[in-house]
Design a protein around this nucleic acid. Structure first.
Length: 253
DNA sequence: GTGTGAGTCATCTCCTCGGA
DNA sequence: TCCGAGGAGATGACTCACAC
């Protein structure tokens, strides 16, 4: 599609390059897909800006270019934010100058947040994803695990994540936020092992618990007026326990 | 003491399910 | 079909620890 569009209208936005460090040709910083599409369209020259960017500036430009795409996977976003933040820190980014018009001083994360239309916290959450082992990160990309539980899982040690992966595969289940939070706490206390993971992952989730309901009309004749549903439930349980005890006594004779 | 990054917690929103 | 309840997940504010 891109190739067809370039064939018809030409390259609208110039690509961005920088001279290679060995002096042999140019390195594309932004526009790899457009260059590839031009090749497919049979175009052998494309408009380009050649900018004297150092390595960190090149990383920042590259990330900015990639993150503009639609449908960026969470893992791509995570590593992009991480790379860009590290490059900004290495550069000693002049946040005071960049934000001068706003009359405030921003940290690198805050500046990155402004530039990416995400909050500082969101940026940090995405970066946490880079601590996940690849198969679990892939599950985040595939929407099998939501971002928030995934962030909690990123605090597990690598071997704990591997144990969790085995359990997820064998039980065909993924952790909910509360399960992920519990595993994180246990991990921090050094109490998370394969058995605990299995126990947590195989427990019934609150919305999966079976409940028994019947109409109050059906049983209210057995109770005094003004008895609340809770009192009815408690009374029924007491009766059942008493009956069970009687049965045990009979059986033991 | 200050700046920065990381983690925690409370609140809000969205979604699903069951009942009317 | 609508509405309310409950749960899961997302989000922002706040707090704390650490480096300088």
């Amino acid at each position: 599609e891109l190739a067809e569009s370039i064939k018809e209208f030409g390259m609208v936005t110039p690509i961005i390059t920088r001279p290679k460090e060995d002096g042999q040709g140019y390195e594309i910083i932004a526009g790899q897909r457009r260059v590839r599409a031009s090749e497919l369209a049979g175009i052998d020259t494309v408009p380009a800006f050649v900018l004297p960017l150092d390595r960190d500036r090149a990383i920042i430009t590259l990330v900015d270019s990639n993150i503009q795409r639609e449908n960026v996977l969470p893992s791509e976003r995570a590593f992009a934010y991480k790379m860009k933040l590290e490059a900004m820190k290495r550069q000693g980014f002049r946040t005071d100058l960049t934000s001068a018009q706003l009359g405030e001083k921003l940290t690198s994360v805050e500046l990155l947040a402004r530039q990416s239309n995400n909050s500082r916290t969101q940026i940090q959450r995405f970066i946490r994803l880079t601590e996940l082992i690849p198969p679990i990160l892939q599950m985040v990309d595939e929407d099998k695990i939501a971002l928030t539980p995934a962030v909690e899982l990123s605090f597990l040690k690598k071997d704990e994540q591997n144990d969790l992966l085995v359990t997820m595969e064998s039980e065909d289940a993924t952790p909910s936020l509360s399960q992920a939070q519990r595993m994180k706490r246990l991990s921090q206390q050094g109490r998370l092992d394969m058995d605990t993971i299995f126990e947590i992952m195989t427990e019934e989730k609150a919305n999966q618990k079976e409940t028994i309901k019947f109409s109050a009309d059906r049983i209210k004749k057995y109770f005094p007026k003004n008895t609340t549903p809770k009192q009815m439930e408690d009374y029924i349980i007491r009766l059942l326990e008493r009956e069970l005890q009687r049965k045990r006594n009979r059986d033991s004779r």
